[in-house]
Nucleic acid binder design. Structure first.
Lengths: 158, 158
DNA sequence: TATTGTTATACTCTATAACTATA
DNA sequence: TATAGTTATAGAGTATAACAATA
């Protein structure tokens, strides 16, 4: 009989989901954010979409790129968000093919409370770590995300 | 005009997805695991399902609980995995209502390579951290996940 | 011709409610 | 009656391919 969990000295321990700690953490973060979104009557994806628009309107193509979905999928996401009056489509002066997606007033209100609550919930998730650990953890998370973005850009260029 | 990203001294910086570092990290982990699953012709959810069965067969109810989905949703997940010959439904001696879900031979092969590749990919994701940082990071991730599981059990009991 | 976005289609994942079979 | 699981239904999210309009 094989022993699936005994895969060598560097084998990541099987956690709650049978995957490495990092995968378990991601599942936990996801469900935490999903709960917050749910309390604000948003889907998790709508939460992400609205958060991306906090800094200003974006074109469909750019939004799709940042969300990591195909443009055809984004059409549906924006359709549903627009139907719920969270965002609006605007024309781009000078290019009649393009579409700018912007937060509506309702979307702006919704996303500010959602963003604050999500940040609080994720903060609370780290409650068992010391202040120093939390800071280190966030810094390392940011490092990892940044280096991943960097290699993504690099492979897109090269 | 409001400045959505300026929400006070403890405001988590808007990252790649407009959410805190932890949310960005979760998105990154998710997409990394999804890529690995895709290379093995699995959906990410099938990957999780199979990993949970690595330690042995589980009942539908227990599997649903561990995956964090409703039992009705699990029926579909198991249907599709069974249709692809990754898992099989077995009878539970002594309770003819119950169903045990077990890895098939094909599922066992599939999950071992998937699990190893996912672990490697997540390891590689931490490549920009030092050895000590990686260890600390994994330990903190495990702590956070464990304390979340603990409070989940506590609220289920109390 | 190339680019921007939408439509058409098909799937996975998910929840809720109603149901069947068994305990 | 209570529990284990399925069926029915509806909707979100996703990809691929084909398309329209504009550049």
């Amino acid at each position: 009989m094989s022993e699936p969990t005994d895969c060598g000295p560097s084998c990541p321990t099987l956690g709650a989901t049978g995957l490495p700690e990092l995968a378990d953490l991601a599942v936990l973060v996801r469900s935490t954010v999903a709960d917050v979104a749910d309390r604000h009557d948003l889907t998790p994806m709508q939460g992400r979409l609205l958060c991306l628009l906090l800094d200003g309107p974006l074109r469909m193509a750019e939004l799709a790129r940042r969300l990591g979905v195909e443009k055809a999928a984004l059409t549906g996401l924006v359709d549903r968000a627009e139907r719920r009056s969270l965002v609006e489509r605007r024309a781009v002066p000078g290019d009649r093919r393009a579409v700018l997606v912007a937060l509506s007033d309702a979307g702006t209100s919704a996303v500010s409370v959602f963003h604050a609550d999500a940040a609080d919930a994720l903060d609370a998730m780290l409650g068992d770590l010391t202040e120093e650990e939390r800071a280190a953890f966030r810094r390392m998370a940011a490092t990892v995300v940044a280096s991943a973005s960097a290699s993504a850009s690099a492979s897109a260029v090269g």
